[in-house]
Amino acid sequence: MFDLTGRKALVTGATGGLGEEIARLLHKQGAIVGLHGTRVEKLEALAADLGGDRVKIFPANLSDRDEVKALGEKAEAELEGVDILVNNAGITKDGLFVRMSDADWDSVLEVNLTAVFRLTRELTHPMMRRRHGRIINISSVVGVTGNPGQANYCASKAGLIGFSKSLAQEIATRNVTVNCVAPGFIESAMTGKLNDKQKDAILGAIPMKRMGAGADIAAAVLYLASNEAGYVTGQTIHVNGGMAMI
């Protein structure tokens, strides 16, 4: 089950905590993995840690539209066809809405949503031609529930869900599936900085009384990437310890 031998996967934001877990798991299951990130040294370190075998790195700045297009073309060429695209890269620029600047809105939407549109557009047509593909977008529980201070981020993550459902319907006949994984609170460098009071408040809202691990998210991504999930499209898998039951 869930064997990805011979499949080629591109994971954006692969040097972030979540992206790294996803890339590691897809690699472990046999995929040839393209690692996208912004910092070359971190990409090289991760590639080396994966043994340098079945791995390629693709540095690119997702705020730059030309670089996003070039990333798609390069990955398609160098991996000789991307079978699995994991749009994981995302940024936050939090702030209360009434004080939110245009720049903070624009930069979050640009990276979290527009870059996904552009990169996916580059890679979808070849997938359609091959009559096989898996597009997996990392959304968030707050894209569905909302979260004060994150109007831009929540809009982008909700946007991914609508985007995925539309694309899923358009290309379902070509055996290309499009789904989202929506993580809840995940242990990371960011949540590690929270104080005990903040942590207690978060855990109080999670029936499982613990944060998730990157591996929990990676497992959902692996499922959607696998042959076994071939009949699943347009869906959002919520991995959140029961925090929101949607």
């Binding site: 047509h125 359609m128 358009e170 006949t173 070509r174």
Partner: peptide, 11 residues
């Protein structure tokens, strides 16, 4: 052809 085929043909 379906509608997607016609788009692909044009491309």
């Amino acid at each position: 052809a379906d509608s997607l085929d016609t788009v692909e043909l044009v491309m």
